[in-house]
Design a binder for these strands. Structure first.
Lengths: 226, 226
DNA sequence: ACCTGAACACCGTTCAAGT
DNA sequence: ACCTGAACACCGTTCAAGT
């Protein structure tokens, strides 16, 4: 590694000094490129041009690193939501924002699942809950309804993340789904009538549309609560 | 290790021979006791009194092992559903059966999440889909609705599994939730009104009841679909 | 206070060698 | 055909030693 003579010490604060924020930014970069398996303390240290152990001075362990990376993606996303019009539309925007983020960051889904009562999920509860109030959901029901929406969103994000990770060895989503559809189609229609019926739709469905359809189902439920 | 003189070779088939089923059964035993982190090819080999590499003759890798363990739990569960009365009640029974299974097997949730289009999820689709037909959900909507229910169930199971795994170092669920509730309660009520409002309910809510409330919300949505 | 990097205690997986 | 267990290529984490 080339190390230039340090003639630029104009400020006391070295621009390349390690910090929690720089570590998290590098972690996200690696996660996005290589996935969760690619994020290694060694790889991270190499990227930051430091030793593996140095990272532990700023971050307790890998779990905290992943939790912070999740917060770093979710916090600005929920802070920069477009100004509100209709509460239903706002809920759709929140959900779709997260869904699209899970695509840009193919590790986010499994983290949101594991975050249950942590910062990022708390922010999600707050964002959703305020809209529920606007929708007129009665106070006693709000926690359950918000938890249902969070559970649904987390589940779908988790499935998306799993889908992106699982496609075995450079197989496209299309060929992978086609294989699954063929298997479903090959099942006995007497024993598995529904799966058989659905196989063709599986082949070329849009995950994003399906995600939104499920969300709308829940919004319909909210509109007709007892 | 004590090895008795083999005077019992009455049959050609050794009762202690390795087989895929015995491996999976042992894997489930270890998973239930030690969690996903405890399932190791070395621990599994020790439990089966064999070498670590022997397992690879019957199972391709750890992913397949986990997928088979998931199938082994879910298949009998969905096969032995009580005879149907009301389609709504049947859907509740399916969902609750899975939720309770995720409690008995504190690793099942994350696996169901990762199984997307595999056997165990296909069986779940079939079980749910047949009830949707009974409920009169129109054909074009069935795939989306089933996918929404599967996504919700998978998400909640995944959260449950994460909750059970995360409680740090022998902390009970109660104290863990109390800590989270205290943190939420300590937030600025101006900035986080909803989370603040909800904090007390978080402390002593019942996950199972909340799971069922969310399911009922979706069933209400189904009943009022356009 | 902050960083280095070797060392420790593990992993999943492979594979020559055995029966 | 099936099993053994050492070996390989990794991990996360710790910690004495440096600056």
């Amino acid at each position: 590694m080339i190390r230039m003579k340090d003639t630029t010490a104009r400020t006391t604060r070295r621009t390349d000094a390690l910090s929690k924020d720089r570590i998290i930014a590098a972690a996200i970069r690696i996660l996005d490129r290589e996935g969760e398996r690619g994020l290694t303390f060694r790889a991270l240290a190499a990227d930051l041009a430091t030793g593996a152990g140095a990272i532990y001075w700023h971050v307790a362990n890998k779990n905290e690193l992943l939790a912070e990376a999740t917060n770093a993606v979710i916090t600005p996303l929920l802070d920069n939501l477009p100004p509100h019009h209709d509460a239903r539309e706002d809920l759709r925007a929140i959900a779709l924002g997260l869904f699209d983020a899970a695509h840009a960051h193919p590790w986010l889904g499994s983290q949101v699942l594991h975050a249950s009562w942590q910062l990022s999920v708390m922010l999600l509860f707050e964002a959703i809950g305020s809209k529920l109030t606007q929708l007129g959901v009665p106070r006693e029901a709000r926690f359950n309804v918000a938890s249902a929406l969070v559970g649904y969103i987390a589940g779908k994000l988790g499935q998306e993340t799993a889908n992106m990770r699982n496609s075995p060895a450079g197989m496209t989503r299309e060929t992978f789904l086609a294989m699954a559809a063929d298997q479903w189609k090959a099942l006995d229609p007497e024993e598995f009538p529904f799966v058989h019926e659905i196989a063709d739709q599986l082949r070329d469905h849009d995950d994003r549309e399906q995600f939104l359809a499920g969300l709308d189902l829940m919004l319909t439920g909210i509109a007709h609560m007892a």
